[in-house]
């Protein structure tokens, strides 16, 4: 597979995952904020931005309507849904011949739909419907990919991109919720039912959590569920499992290359999460743990870059 193609597939998938995530997080927060006093809401808007790793100019961040408009439709804000969707689509367009017609048409249609949605939609009660179409559009894309794309190397890069982005998003989300307070004193978070629900719903985890633990929401269980669940598709452990599996397959299919380092890094991260226990993490420093996983995820990205996407020319000619 061409290096450029592998890279485009990876980025297409990452951006699309992020589009879905942003749409969900904003939607969840808009709905929950309907129940809150304006003073609280202010704090929540700031957390929302932090959990998406976005910083907006003060003039925008002060006004909820502007925040939503910017996060959705401002092409000059790189983390806005429209900007990321445009990038996902342009990456797809670069590798158009590698995608099935159905995949391309889905991503193209989603892009055209969001492009043409007027901003008026946002406050006229249609917000939810649009976010829903975005989320469903992204999920449909992955379903179509599952059903129509040959599950070869390219498909594996799609998986890596999607799950790496998802893992990072979960980590950032946990950091923004738990980072606000001293983790040894969980009192305030403990009491804030709405916060806990929004955290879980931001990862589609509310119902899944209830099936395991009932609706008895506990911060350590929530953190444990989102970090370490082996079965839940948005937990960090689950995604790292998938990343490692995909990277292993890629390494086998491109056996000409030395991938020892990628293999070790992914395996180590997987082992860390497989054997970690939430009580130990909470007893220690949760934020430190999160930071460490985040660093490893980023290192993995750098390794992908130098092994597959843009290997230095000396390295290619030598092999």
């Amino acid at each position: 597979m061409l290096s450029r193609v592998a890279s485009s597939l990876y980025w297409m998938s990452r951006y699309l995952e992020r589009v879905e995530h942003s749409a969900r997080v904003i939607d969840v927060n808009l709905v929950l904020m309907l129940d809150q006093a304006p003073a609280d809401a202010d704090l929540r808007w700031h957390r929302l931005l932090r959990s998406l790793a976005v910083s907006l100019p003060e003039s925008v961040a002060a006004e909820p309507a502007k925040i939503v408009q910017t996060l959705m439709f401002d092409r000059d804000t790189p983390q806005s849904i429209i900007a990321m969707l445009a990038l996902a689509r342009s990456n797809a367009r670069e590798v158009r011949n590698q995608l099935s017609t159905e995949m391309w048409e889905q991503i193209n249609r989603l892009y055209l739909e969001v492009s043409s949605a007027a901003i008026d939609d946002v406050w006229d009660g249609q917000t939810h419907a649009l976010f829903r179409r975005i989320k469903e559009g992204a999920q449909l894309f992955h379903g179509i990919t599952e059903a129509t794309m040959r599950q070869d190397e390219g498909w594996q890069f799609v998986q890596v991109g999607r799950f790496l982005e998802r893992a990072e998003a979960t980590i950032t989300l946990l950091q923004s919720y738990f980072g606000e307070r001293n983790t040894t004193d969980l009192e305030s978070f403990d009491g804030d039912y709405l916060d806990q629900v929004s955290l879980l719903k931001s990862r589609t985890a509310f119902e899944a959590y209830c099936q395991v633990y009932t609706a008895d929401l506990q911060p350590d269980r929530i953190a444990g569920f989102l970090l370490l669940s082996a079965k839940f598709p948005h937990s960090v452990r689950f995604t790292v499992d998938r990343i490692q599996g995909a990277l292993q397959t890629i390494a086998e299919q491109t056996s000409a290359r030395k991938n020892g380092q990628i293999d070790r890094s992914a395996g180590k991260m997987r082992a860390t999460l497989d054997y970690a226990q939430i009580d130990e993490i909470m007893a220690g420093d949760l934020l430190l743990f999160l930071g460490d996983v985040q660093r490893q995820l980023r290192q993995l990205h750098a390794l992908l870059q130098e092994t597959y996407f843009q290997p230095p020319i000396q390295a290619i000619l030598a092999s």
Binding site: S3, R4, E153, I316
Partner: peptide, 8 residues
């Protein structure tokens, strides 16, 4: 040659 993930 073309540059691929498995070398040239």
């Amino acid at each position: 040659y073309m540059r691929t993930t498995a070398g040239l």
